[in-house]
């Protein structure tokens, strides 16, 4: 609020005061009042007007300067009502009250959606756990009745299981609160577990799994990490289509971080599509020409990595390399 703007705002008062002063002066002249008295009346009148203007200006100026600086310093602008004191002038008071009411109703509204989302997430989690019971039952029936038909059904069940997991992690990734546990974790058993899970595909497609230097300690959540690795390896397996397929998995020790490389010699990703592969729903030319690609897998990996404070990148020369970077510095993680 500058002085110029203030004066422009109060122009009506100044003009009407000038007119009033002129009328009074003429009137007093007309009734032949003493000159000194006329001067006196004028002076008093102007003292009154100017003091009103100055007082109004200073208290507004003080308040709005405070408001602007607080606003600027605030990260979450909607919290302004919590920090501001109530102004002393009436119009300010009214606005302040309105602002508070608006803010409160907005908060209620946001909370409503927050709760709805939480409910939904809880439902998905429950549903996922419920559906695992029939899945487990089906798998048991299959392993008690092994033949070609059930083996084929088993493959489909594996896919079903993966999709169910994806839904679970999607719900978890969208949730606002933390439900993961970052701990000191050895990568080797985790990677072995995921590879073992895909053993059938590896053996069937005759793809080599080449693991070295994976006996490394990192800080991450085991379940989430397993899901991420599972997605990446499933992708690699999907896009290797020749006889000498290999998936290399290894780690590299950097100064402040550990980098995990998952490298395949599959069909790779076009360089113009590379920046977008982590986008939600992006399928790319590989995904479109092949059987179903939802574009959710890598998007979820990215989202989960962000939540775990990990960096994930993709490179493509003669196949695809996914690089996940774990920070070693503990302090950074527990902030």
């Amino acid at each position: 609020m500058s002085l110029k703007n203030y004066i422009r705002d109060k122009l009506y008062l100044i003009i009407s005061s000038i007119i009033t002063a002129i009328i009074i002066t003429f009137f007093l002249f007309a009734v032949k009042t003493n000159r000194a008295a006329i001067l006196m009346v004028n002076a008093l009148f102007w003292i009154l007007i100017i003091s009103i203007l100055i007082k109004e200006y200073t208290r507004r100026k003080e308040y709005y300067v405070d408001l602007e600086s607080t606003m600027e310093a605030l990260d979450q602008k909607y919290l302004i009502t919590e920090l501001l004191k109530e102004p002393e002038f009436l119009d300010g008071k009214l606005l302040f009250q309105t602002l508070r009411d608006v803010d409160k109703s907005m908060c209620d509204h946001v909370n409503l959606y927050k709760n709805k989302q939480l409910d939904y997430k809880e439902y998905i989690e429950m549903w996922v756990h419920e559906i695992k019971t029939p899945l487990a039952a089906s798998k048991l029936i299959i392993s008690n009745n092994k033949n070609e038909v059930t083996a084929s059904i088993d493959e489909e069940l594996e896919k079903l299981d993966d999709l169910v997991e994806q839904a679970l992690y999607y719900a978890r990734s969208a949730a606002l609160e933390k439900d993961y546990l970052i701990r000191e974790t050895n990568l080797a058993p985790l990677i072995n577990k995921v590879i073992r899970k895909h053993a059938k595909s590896f053996i069937y497609k005759n793809i080599r799994a080449d693991l070295h230097d994976i006996d490394t300690i990192v800080y991450t959540d085991i379940k989430w990490m397993e899901f991420i690795l599972n997605q990446i390896i499933a992708n690699s397996l999907k896009y290797i289509r020749h006889d000498h397929g290999t998936i290399h998995i290894y780690t590299c020790q950097q100064k402040n971080s550990v980098q995990l490389y998952i490298q395949d010699n599959g069909i790779g990703i076009r360089s113009n599509e590379l920046p977008r592969i982590f986008d939600k729903g992006f399928t790319g030319s590989n995904g479109r020409t092949n059987e179903k690609a939802t574009g959710m897998g890598l998007y979820l990996c990215k989202t989960l990595c962000e939540k775990l404070h990990l960096d994930i990148q993709a490179e493509s020369h003669d196949g695809t390399t996914i690089i996940i970077t774990f920070l070693i510095n503990k302090q950074l993680l527990f902030q």
Partner: peptide
């Protein structure tokens, strides 16, 4: 393939 599956289950990832 059964043999390989058995080995993979024991975390020996042979081709």
């Amino acid at each position: 393939s059964e043999l390989m599956q058995h080995m993979w289950d024991c975390e020996l990832f042979v081709d």
